[in-house]
């Protein structure tokens, strides 16, 4: 039996004012609890697709169902408790004077009781490890911490689906993994995660499924190993799988691999078995 759907995009076409069609006849089903990566070149339609899922833009044609609700019929405020989104530039998402106010901004808009707001803020800040700096002016934080404040702000809305739109842009190695680790933990806690990124190594390591968009259309959609196992297809949109996968794909027959190689740990294991080195 198939799982319940978190997102069901049916024949979605979206044309921006000025006649630019960003998405053409997109179909996508995301089951609850999935960790979906969306990749593609700039201008492929990734951000437009997720904006459609949040209800920020309404389909020109087709429809988007989110947890059973049609985005055309439900208001954005109502949607915000079902689906949250961490946008790319943290600086455009910080409006409050303190970290605490920032995280409380959403729950306050929902007109929740004070105790509920406080408990949500506390929980969200603890989740990202910022509970000690709740009185700081958010724009004065480091880029990594600013991103965490945004994540906490989204968590405080307690949405079932969380979208990360290029959350690692401009972050250092540690920052990238910290952010995506939060996404993984949330996924393990039952949230459906959709992540747009240009960081293929992160996709390989964290996403269980990948959607590849190319010029507003779906080029590929499948389990991460399967998608990265077809480099010729990915090359059509100028995407190169992570180095470890490229190595695996090249040594496919020699290594006796079953599916694409996605993680360094796995590569180590395969090679060890092959050369029969005891550790």
């Amino acid at each position: 039996m198939s799982k319940e759907l978190a997102v069901d995009v049916k024949n979605l076409t979206y044309t921006y004012p000025g006649d630019f069609t960003a998405l053409r006849d997109i179909n996508l089903k995301v089951e609850k609890g999935e960790f979906l990566g969306i990749i593609g070149q700039n201008g492929a339609g990734k951000s437009t697709l997720v904006k459609g899922i949040t209800g920020l833009i309404k389909p020109t044609k087709g429809e988007i169902m989110v947890l059973g609700d049609n985005t055309k019929e439900v208001g954005i405020a109502e949607m915000s408790v079902k689906v949250g989104m961490v946008l790319q530039n943290p600086d455009n998402q910080l409006f409050a004077q303190t970290v605490e106010d920032e995280v409380a901004f959403g729950p306050e808009n929902l007109e929740l009781p004070e105790e509920e707001i406080e408990s949500r803020v506390q929980k969200a800040l603890e989740y990202v490890g910022l509970e000690d700096i709740r009185d700081v002016f958010p724009p004065s934080l480091s880029k990594g911490d600013r991103a965490k404040v945004i994540i906490a702000s989204v968590l405080a809305m307690e949405p079932e689906i969380i979208i990360f739109d290029e959350p690692t842009t401009g972050q250092d190695f540690r920052g990238c993994h910290q952010i995506v680790n939060v996404a993984r933990e949330l996924n393990e806690a039952g949230h459906t995660i959709i992540m747009i990124t240009h960081h293929m190594a992160l996709v390989a390591e964290y996403c269980s499924r990948v959607l590849v968009l190319c010029q507003g259309e779906v080029l590929m959609d499948g389990p991460t190993g399967e998608v990265f196992g077809k480099p010729e297809e990915l090359a059509k949109t100028h995407i190169v799988p992570p180095q470890i996968t490229v190595m695996g794909n090249n040594l496919w027959s020699e290594l006796g691999l079953d599916g694409a190689l996605l993680k360094v740990e796995k590569a180590k294991e395969v090679i060890r078995n092959k050369v029969k080195v005891e550790t």
Binding site: S80, M85, L87, Q93, G106, N109
Partner: peptide, 9 residues
């Protein structure tokens, strides 16, 4: 957009 996503209307 960021504000709307946090139920600010």
């Amino acid at each position: 957009d960021a504000q709307k996503l946090r139920a600010f209307q």
